[in-house]
Design a protein around this nucleic acid. Structure first.
Lengths: 221, 221
DNA sequence: ATTACTAGCACTCGAGTAG
DNA sequence: TCTACTCGAGTGCTAGTAA
């Protein structure tokens, strides 16, 4: 990971703030970063090439939009530091119960996944996932969790197709132990999937759109 | 700030863990960082030159000791990310009341400081500081606070000598508003100085060696 | 005003190798 | 084995300048 890329992302995010959008000339960016205008321009081109940012040339100044990959980079570094400095923190998110459409069920019930869940998570998951749409005010926490290592579940192939790797995080809802699972290669989404050895919908008496709180038991290292 | 220096510090700290001491050959370090042995060796020399680390050549492998400057660098980056990602966190430390020897009193009672305290902190401090020796388990939090920006108080000169800049952090003890003040150029110490418009020793009925809790009202930006 | 190409200088990297 | 020097190649910087 090239440093200048990282420094540029930091600078852009600092100026953009929460909206992740900013209007800035290469000259202004150059001054913020203490580099030449040419270097700032080159950095923007590199960030564009690598899909860290999107850009619209407007009349006066270019409009830069920070893509999810930029945020990932920053939260990844934050997690690195948490891990290295051995800072332990617990996280809490809230969201709405969503109807899962049975997709998660199809994936996790694959034997190759199930065997690994049993080995690595020490649970035999209920054949289905609980889907939660995270409330917007918790999205940055979600980003931070997504950026962490988690417990890795290997992908595999069957005759028809490839199933990607998954990473899992220890969590609990109302005292019931469960795991958040993320596909390792996927775009950002505010919907997370939960597995547990219990049928959570029934155990916790949940209905669609109920708001629930989920605690992540983060353990760096 | 050169990235490779930063990456090297991260790697060293990750391996060293809490003790901040590690035994590692340039070759091993090279593998950890995915660079050549020569580059790893060069990084170590640079870190030595810049006083980030200390080193003892032992029979088999060099013994590397991470100096305070390395930790500062990592906590500084953590603070940067907190600020950029607009993560607000409150901190709490505990420590023992210490006899201040009247030094703090001499410094802060200087008019040039006092005027700025009044302007920037909106208090007219009591003529003295409360000294607290932070308990070891809170030292990393102290490092993180020291690494942050704070409210800047300018240094100045009088006929005899130079008085350095100071940075201040909003805090409170038992609900009483106060400020932690750090000399801007000083070595790490586990003793912090507190100012307030109240005589805290009396207001809070404190005696030497009492253990107190201090809350830092951290406001990035 | 902008952005960004080109050219030349400077810095960094790793291979070879000395101590 | 270690650490770390030299040197050539490659990368990244800025100044000049085009569009």
């Amino acid at each position: 990971m090239n440093s200048t890329i990282y420094e540029t992302i930091k600078t852009l995010k600092r100026i953009a703030g929460e909206k992740n959008i900013l209007y800035i000339s290469s000259n202004e960016l150059a001054k913020e970063m203490n580099v030449s205008q040419q270097t700032a321009s080159r950095m923007i081109i590199e960030l564009l090439d690598d899909k860290y940012i999107d850009r619209k040339m407007e009349n006066r100044k270019q409009k830069i939009i920070l893509m999810e990959k930029s945020l990932d980079t920053l939260y990844k570094e934050l997690n690195d530091l948490y891990s290295i400095l051995e800072i332990n923190q617990s996280f809490e998110m809230k969201g709405n119960i969503k109807n899962g459409l049975g997709e998660g069920k199809y994936y996790i019930s694959k034997k190759e996944y199930m065997d690994q869940f049993y080995d690595k998570l020490k649970i035999k998951p209920y054949y289905g996932t609980l889907n939660i749409k995270i409330l917007p005010e918790y999205e940055n926490i979600l980003r931070q969790i997504r950026g962490a290592e988690g417990i890795h579940i290997e992908g595999f192939k069957d005759k028809e197709r490839t199933f990607g790797g998954v990473k899992c995080f220890n969590a609990h809802i109302d005292g019931i132990k469960c795991f958040i699972i993320f596909p390792e290669r996927s775009n950002y989404t505010d919907i997370i999937e939960i597995i547990s050895d219990r049928y959570l919908r029934e155990t916790l008496n949940l209905k669609d759109n109920d708001i629930i709180k989920i605690n992540i038991d983060f353990n760096f290292n």
